[in-house]
């Protein structure tokens, strides 16, 4: 018996493969049910026009009850960086409520991709979070271990 998380992820993957991803989102890699990679690109006019970001999902065995660990992939030596955004730290960690306290098991990988895409699309000014340096210095490897404080509900 495959676990619930594997079954659910298999369904999501199957749907992505038959139905395709939303516009601007592409599945890069899903070799197992632990880590998936997506590329996301903001369509239309935005501050991120022409930029393609890589989004990393990590699932634990409690998915979908517990949220996936989602972050932008950062590989300095390969030139992959996190987008500059007031809610995205330079190590790729994202401060978004739906990845933390506001996660709901009815959300899906694709839903998260679209949410983050729209988070980028609605950005007014490209800047790092104010406490970026402090956070990145001591940040845990897994963004789920960070207790974010969500203060901005406009994005």
């Amino acid at each position: 018996m495959a676990s619930i998380s594997a079954k659910r992820l298999a369904k999501e993957l199957k749907e992505i493969q038959t139905e395709g991803c939303p516009v601007g989102v592409n599945l890069l890699r899903a070799d197992d049910f632990q880590t998936w990679l997506f590329s996301i690109e903001v369509m239309g006019e935005s501050l991120y026009k022409g930029e393609v970001q890589t989004l990393q999902f990590r699932f634990d065995s409690n998915y979908p009850i517990s949220s996936p660990a989602v972050q932008f992939l950062v590989r300095e030596n390969e030139g992959i960086r996190a987008p500059i955004h007031p809610h995205v730290y330079s190590n790729g960690h994202i401060c978004a409520s739906i990845l933390g306290t506001e996660w709901s098991p009815v959300l899906s990988v694709v839903a998260v991709c679209v949410t983050l895409q729209s988070m980028l699309a609605s950005c007014k000014k490209k800047e790092r979070p104010v406490d970026n340096d402090r956070y990145v210095l001591h940040a845990p490897e897994n963004p789920k271990k960070t207790q974010f404080h969500y203060d901005d509900d406009t994005v």
């Binding site: 516009v23 895409q117 609605s122």
Partner: peptide, 8 residues
């Protein structure tokens, strides 16, 4: 394409 519907 327009940007996707607002995320929240």
């Amino acid at each position: 394409q327009q940007p996707p519907p607002h995320a929240i």
